[in-house]
Amino acid sequence: MERDIIDLLRSKKDQVLTLWLQAQDSDTEASSNFNTHDELQAQSSEFVDLLFGSITEHNIQDFTSWELEALTDYVSSLTISRARQGFSPRETATYIFTLKDALLKVLSEQIESDPVKLYHASIQISKFIDNIGILSFETFITGREDIISQQSDEMAELSTPVIRVWNGILAMPIIGTLDSARTQVVMENLLQGIVDTGSSIAILDISGVPAVDSLVAQHLIKTVNATRLMGAECIISGIRPEIAQTVVHLGIDLSQMITKATLESALKYAFNTLQLEVRRVQKEKVNG
C-alpha cells in the first residue's frame, strides 16, 4: 500500500474512532456489554492509537513484523480481559471487525475518485484486520487450553490420595475413569506409599470408577501384580453390582485377585490377615 493512504487514514484518526464507536453503539450484541461507555471509549481509543502508531506501508503486508509487537500484545491482553469479563469470542471478534468497517468507510470517502487504488487498499486493510481477529481467537483458545491442562493436572493430583488406614494397611480410593496415564500415577503413588510406610496390604477402592471395561480391568490387574512384586497384597474393593455384571459379561477373569464388595469387608479381610481383631469394649472397663 502506498504511504499516502496510511498517512491519509492517520490524519482521519478521530473520524475512524468516532465511526467505530458509533458502530459499536448500534451493534445490538455489543450493546449488551459489561463495560461502561467511557471504558469502551478509552479502550477503543488506545487501540486506534496503537494501530496508527505502529502500522507502516511495509508491515501491513507482514503481520509477524516486530514493529507490530506492541499492537499484538495489546490485542492479546484485550482478548484475555474481555474473556474474563464474560464476552464471547464472537463479541470480541465483532468488536475488532467493526473497526474494519470504520476504516473502509473513511477510506472510500477519501479516495472515491480512484477505484483501483481503493480496491487494493481495501483488500490490504481487510487482510490486516482479519489477522488481528485471528490473533484474538488464537489467544482465546490458548488461554482456554492452558486452563484445561491446569485443571486436568489438578484433577490427577486430587484423585489419587494414599491413605494409611491402619499400621500396615493402605487404602487408595480411585475417583473417575482409569486410563493409562492415571494408572501410571496410581501405581507409582501406591507403590511409593507401600515403601514409605512399610505396609503389607493395600486396598484399591473402585467405588468411584464409573465403568470397568477390559482396558480398565487390565490396568487394575497390572497394579495388583506390581503390588505383589513389591511384597504386599492388594485388595480391590468397591465392586458395585453393575461393575460385577459388566466384568462377567466381558469375560474378564479377576479370579486371581482378592475382590471385595465394600471397603468394610476389605478392611475386615486385612485385619484378619494381619491377625488383628476389632472388639467392642465393655463400658465399665473403659470407665474403670
Binding site: 506390581a226 503390588t227 505383589r228
Partner: peptide, 28 residues
C-alpha cells in the same frame, strides 16, 4: 522369596509382561 523390590523395578517388570508368578515376595 524376592524382597525389597523398588517401585520403579516393579512397574518395569509389569510393563514388560513379567509378573514373576512363581516367586514369593516380601517388603524387606
Amino acid at each position: 522369596v524376592v524382597v525389597g523390590m523398588q517401585p520403579a523395578v516393579a512397574i518395569t517388570l509389569i510393563e514388560l509382561g513379567l509378573p514373576l508368578s512363581g516367586v514369593h515376595t516380601a517388603l524387606n
